[in-house]
Nucleic acid binder design. Structure first.
Lengths: 346, 346
DNA sequence: CCATCGATGGAAATCGTTCTACCTGTTGCG
DNA sequence: CGCAACAGGTAGAACGATTTCCATCGATGG
């Protein structure tokens, strides 16, 4: 442990400015009731000492931590595969940092017990003022838990069954999927497969249903394959199975880019030309998709904007006065690249 | 703002157990001097009330936050491309969480000013007990800054010029690179290019020099191409340039997997067969490399183990008694897959 | 000329812990 | 029997801010 010598306190500032502790506090928090001259002196003293209020003291006194929590429960290999969170977090940070908020991140394995325990602990220790939630599940227990704990939270995504949980999501969240359906139909595809993620995610189900419905309206019934996890290995084996079918699909849509790339790799390894004999579509628009050959057709959503919007919404909930405008999130949109092409002749 | 009603304090526990505040504190912190019977009563009371000490109060009193900081300054698109950090953080988390430590994460854009300011702020507000640092640069100003601020820190990677900064890294950090050189030579490659990252990173330079030296010993001089950023676009244009050379290389080694994949995509798009006409090697062993076709030969390092080791080292520095064994980090190792093959006949 | 008022600024309580004294029996020992 | 040592426990002072009263003072108005 180092010495704490030198770390100035509010009293040091007060002494230097020749005023009382309370005066300093009032000035620095712009609470008024202090003359311009005194205020200037205080500010100068604070600047000279480079004083910054102790987060712990502020938190203890005011029950405000200026810190928000985020708990992510995912297996390490899934984290490794998917830069999803980093982008969202950096978007949130852009909003949080200017207002002096920090982000307390917990990356757990895929263990619901531990996840709940972490929320509980963070709340009980009063380490955070609120939470940012991701990946809402069917019957998600977190909403109830956090309400019990008296914690504010904003969900990134779609709450389950019109739960009153505050949330943010892309404008036109399904447009990308619908455009995908249209795109494939326009290219002449009729045998289309959809490789969905685990069914416990709300967005997984929503997107799949939107896709199926859109195709049905044109008289096409897609083959549905459900992965148990958002997993590249699953994507590969499912793709291999699909390609072995007698009337194999001419287009496969995957739940995310990582699965799409793994699937495309599997097809190529099997000697199937993409997009000549098979079209492939992903979801997320990860940078890698652009550099892959053939470049991946996918649905883009602005994760950074979503993160930022979630942060603003949460700060609002926390009673922060100046969280800025609620930024609007652009709609999801289909990005057409090289991995989709006209359906091969039957 | 919610009510704070119900959140029990240490006094509530003391009252319920029929003892004094100090007794509760002693029991819960295992400081001794309390009879087994009383201790049991206290523990029972604490459990019944589900009491957890307030982090703010503990921090204020003891100057201990039980929280470590991590500041990452990288542009959003680089974050998006590279799941590097998530894995490292989840490794660190495995060590931190059981000891009740949290991680304050700050994801900034690539802005050295803001980065320094963030360290300063976190330290002054006493929000963290210490820092985990990544990506040491040539002449890295952070070491000096943190020493000034009286903050403990552990660097993940190699410090600059034997700086006394505590650090952790893979065992045999260069073995992977050396094995790469050997591997390519064994396959008969003689015209080899090395696409390095920005020269301000310590590891970038070290790896490149190790690679060049290893080849030289066998009388081969590689072509060196330096990217200004760890960037897929750069990787692509550099690759295109390399492939247009009169005596174009038969093997290209990239500074990381994302660049390698982008480079491979560029080659394939130019109609060059990998590995038939060109071998490609990456670094990091991201999961995507395994699913790509052809699967990427690359150097693996155990990022989770590195993160965990860094966390243990930091906790040691912070005087934490039971941070567990210093886990050993496995050596870097070459993972040979499909993207490397025998050199094409001259 | 005195009561009132608005504007400033200060004193002190408070948040929930930890930790250093100190107190109080009981036991040990010469 | 008298005193030290000790075990078990308590009281209360920090830690560093915010915030709620108060006190002061010059000005103002009746």
């Amino acid at each position: 442990m180092r010495e704490n010598v030198g770390r100035p306190t509010i009293d040091d500032v007060a002494a230097l400015a020749g005023v009382s502790r309370s005066a300093v506090s009032k000035v620095m928090n712009e609470r008024g009731g202090i003359s311009a001259k005194t205020a200037a002196a205080v500010r100068e003293a604070a600047a000279k000492l480079k004083w910054v209020p102790s987060a712990a003291a502020v938190a203890l006194r005011g029950a405000r931590t200026r810190s928000v929590g985020m708990v992510i429960a995912r297996s390490t290999d899934l984290l490794a595969a998917d830069p999803y969170f980093a982008v969202m977090i950096s978007g949130a940070e852009q909003v949080l940092a200017p207002l002096g908020y920090g982000l307390q991140l917990h990356l757990l394995g895929d263990d619901p017990e531990a996840e709940m325990a972490t929320y509980r602990k963070l709340a009980r220790e009063r380490r955070v003022d609120g939470f940012l939630l991701t990946e809402s599940r069917i019957g998600d227990p977190r909403f109830a838990l956090l309400r019990d704990l008296g914690q504010q939270a904003v969900l990134i995504g779609i709450p389950w069954q019109d739960d009153p949980q505050p949330h943010v999501q892309s404008a036109a969240p399904l447009r990308g999927v619908l455009d995908t359906a249209r795109h494939l139909l326009d290219l002449g595809h009729r045998r289309i497969a959809y490789v969905s993620g685990p069914d416990d995610r709300v967005h997984t189900v929503q997107r799949r249903e939107a896709f199926v419905t859109a195709l049905r309206e044109s008289g096409v019934t897609p083959t549905i394959a459900g992965a148990r996890r958002f997993d590249s290995l699953e994507a590969r084996t499912i793709t291999e199975d699909l390609l072995r079918m007698p009337d194999r699909p001419t287009a496969i849509v995957f739940a995310n880019d990582m699965m799409a790339l793994a699937g495309m790799g599997a097809a190529q390894r099997a000697g199937i030309d993409v997009p000549g004999s098979l079209s492939v579509v992903g979801y997320d628009d990860l940078p890698i998709g652009e550099w892959h050959y053939p470049a991946l057709t996918t649905v883009a959503q602005d994760l950074a904007a979503i993160g930022a919007a979630a942060a603003v919404a949460l700060l609002r909930l926390l009673g922060e006065e100046r969280p800025g405008q609620q930024p609007d999130i652009p709609p999801t949109r289909l990005v057409i690249r090289e991995s989709t092409g006209t359906a091969p002749p039957a």
